[in-house]
Design a protein around this nucleic acid. Structure first.
Lengths: 244, 244
DNA sequence: GTGATACATATCATCCTACAACTTGCGTCG
DNA sequence: CGACGCAAGTTGTAGGATGATATGTATCAC
């Protein structure tokens, strides 16, 4: 928990600020792919920091595949397709519209993954999922704990697909949504209590136990649409309402 | 193209090596979440590099949310759920089984996204998609060019969903698969020519023009299963064969 | 003895300088 | 005119110095 507080209120370190500046400049199109960045010395003068700080910032962008540095020449902006990592800007999460987009992505990922999980889960998976489910509705009414258990529930289902990439992606998207909701609550204390609908979770779990992919997918889809509604986001998914 | 070659044969810089070492140590579980890393000085002595190099390596891991540095105390390993970025190890892509997992993830993402795109696309989107389609089957029979056009086709469809996160995720997964195929071809020159099935693409495009979500989803699913087969991966998707 | 204050220590954050490695372009020389 | 080499610019690495922050310890007052 101490980590969580620190993670949220992270002090903006200098390299992080420089990296964020350059990153925005690239995303916004001021620096097109193929363009050459100013030299490290120029950047250090421009920002009023040491060259060391600039180097750490560039190292970060380079690790993400946003830029490529060539010794003796300079650093160049790479095309977006060459990115080696997916990173979501925390600032963007404060926009409700982006939260809606995240929920949409999550729905796509989790609905079909639930079907996969229903087909492939073994007893160990079911036990882990059940444990998370119990933690959610159980004695601990502490809010943060319930949210943790909720996320764990979804992660365990993702793990039951047996596909580590699916697990990684779903964990990531869920965590981004957690942050997004966190921000939304700070600015708008109306949703002070994000209720967790245990019934929806139970229906998903039952479908997994039954090994019914179609039922699991439908239950998961209904759950995520419901969860989005509870935080004030209505999903315009084509399948949500109209599909069979 | 020069960038591409350089990107593949990238010289392993020292900070990158240190970061990779620590990253593997964390992934493998030798350093559990909450554990404290050795001090920067210890690491610099252990690897025989300057403290500056160690700092750049740690800056990378910190940007990914793998570790958290606290001034005056040390650096600590964070839980996997707290990662701020998704990064896929290039080495892992050489494993065929992982390629299969990637195709599975891609199928989940793209099938439903195609349905969304069919519902939301405008004329501009259709034009961009058509342009990519033409480049694929057109005069340019240069292999790399066809692959580029293929990926562009998929990216443009993802863009037509109007959801930037979906676009980012699909672009990323497709690019990882491109690399994976690249590696597979180096070791096994059998698939020297990855044929691109234009007919499958046309069917997807037609469904998008018609604005038929269900048809677009089905066509996309068939296409990705087919593409996987053509590179020697058979997808065990529950929906692929049995659905409907 | 107990509590609080002050100090010493450990560690990360930033800065500075210097040199090595690499690329490019220009000028010199054969 | 060509080839070689040198100089300048840029990134890569090294090493030390100083500031900021957290922790433990010792001292001192009560």
């Amino acid at each position: 928990m101490k980590q969580r507080l620190a993670a949220i209120g992270t002090v903006e370190t200098l390299p992080h600020r420089v990296a964020a500046f350059l990153s925005r400049e690239i995303e916004s199109g001021e620096l097109n792919p193929g363009a050459r960045l100013p030299t490290e010395q120029e950047l250090s003068e421009k920002f009023g920091v040491s060259r060391n700080v600039v180097r750490e910032a560039i190292a970060q962008l380079r690790a993400d595949g946003m830029i490529e540095a060539r010794q003796g020449i300079g650093a160049f902006v790479l095309a977006p397709e060459q990115r080696a990592a997916i990173r979501i800007d925390r600032e963007a999460l404060k926009d409700t519209h982006n939260m809606e987009r995240l929920f949409e992505l999550r729905c796509i990922l989790e609905a079909e993954s639930a079907a996969l999980a229903a087909a492939r889960r073994n007893q160990g998976h079911l036990d882990s999922i059940k444990a998370a489910l119990d933690r959610m509705g159980g004695e601990e009414r502490w809010e943060e704990g319930s949210i943790d258990a909720d996320l764990l529930f979804h992660r365990e289902i993702a793990r039951a697909t047996g596909n580590s990439y699916i697990h990684t992606f779903i964990s990531f998207v869920c965590e981004q949504i957690r942050h997004s909701i966190h921000y939304a609550r700070m600015t708008n204390p109306l949703h002070d209590l994000v209720e967790i609908n245990v019934g929806e979770h139970v229906r998903i779990y039952d479908a997994l136990v039954a090994g019914d992919p179609a039922a699991a997918e439908a239950a998961m889809r209904a759950h995520i649409v419901g969860a989005a509604n509870r935080v004030g986001v209505k999903l315009p998914l084509s399948k949500a309402g109209g599909a069979k």
